[in-house]
């Protein structure tokens, strides 16, 4: 690596929603370096007022996602050498969400939509009942398992063009959560989930463009989960008419 290659030109989005501007920083380049390392270097060495969010640094907490060169990424597990273009990086807060400040997106709409999609546990038993047995190789259980590793990073939400164009749309993460719970034997009131995802802005707004499944850092497949909800809501419509 020659001297010129030893420095990264990093453009960082600063400010809050409606008052954003870009600022350039020069950051030393290393052989092994994540995008989060670059952001942290800027905050520690160039501008301590830079705001961003992270916690675990190992791809488990889902708090450090940002737009890197225009694409949503979990920055703690994204190596600079994988995404850098001509020694330059552009880093911005997650798309489709309001901005608190600089690189920290306001996750409120994202999590509100989880609740709107009934994406929370509806228990079947109390602490006084015996534990429910769950058969690991059951078909329903496997459908629930497919989406259970979601870390709520909102990369799919930022990648989705339907979210960008339709404010009411619940988005891939909330709908995948709804599908996971619908298939979970420990969760009851599946009808409430189907009703919630059938409202305007629910699973039927999805155009199956697949950006969610393409960008999910945990290689989950929200698009197929949403397809499952579409099938189940359609079947349920005919079941109810009988």
């Amino acid at each position: 690596m020659d001297q010129k290659d030893n420095t990264l030109k990093v453009t960082v989005s600063r400010g809050t929603s409606g008052e954003q501007f870009e600022q350039e920083f020069e950051v030393p380049a290393y052989e092994n370096q994540t995008v989060l390392d670059v952001v942290s270097w800027i905050q520690q060495n160039s501008d301590p007022t830079l705001s961003y969010r992270f916690a675990c640094r190992v791809g488990m907490c889902g708090s450090c996602a940002m737009m890197v060169n225009g694409e949503p990424r979990w920055t703690c597990r994204t190596h600079v050498k994988k995404v850098v273009r001509k020694n330059t990086l552009s880093i911005a807060p997650l798309r489709n969400l309001p901005v608190v400040k600089d690189l920290a997106a306001d996750m409120t709409p994202f999590f509100d939509k989880w609740v709107d999609a009934e994406g929370y546990h509806h228990p079947t038993r109390t602490r006084h009942d015996p534990m429910q047995e769950v058969t690991p190789n059951d078909e329903e259980r496997n459908r629930a398992n497919a989406g259970i590793e979601c870390i709520n990073c909102a990369v799919c939400y930022a990648a989705c063009d339907t979210v960008a164009n339709n404010d009411a749309y619940l988005g891939p993460a909330a709908l995948q959560r709804a599908w996971t719970l619908y298939n979970d034997q420990k969760n009851e009131n599946g009808q409430a989930i189907l009703d919630a995802v059938s409202r305007d802005g629910g699973c039927h707004s999805c155009h199956s463009m697949g950006s969610c499944s393409l960008y999910c850092p945990n290689e989950l497949d929200p698009m197929s989960a949403i397809a499952g909800l579409k099938r189940e809501t359609a079947k349920n419509l005919f079941r109810r008419r009988r």
């Binding site: 059938s198 409202r199 305007d200 629910g202 039927h204 579409k230 809501t233 359609a234 419509l237």
Partner: peptide, 12 residues
Amino acid sequence: MLEFRLYMAQRL
């Protein structure tokens, strides 16, 4: 619910 009805009408 309107969107769901339209979705079904479009598929049918």
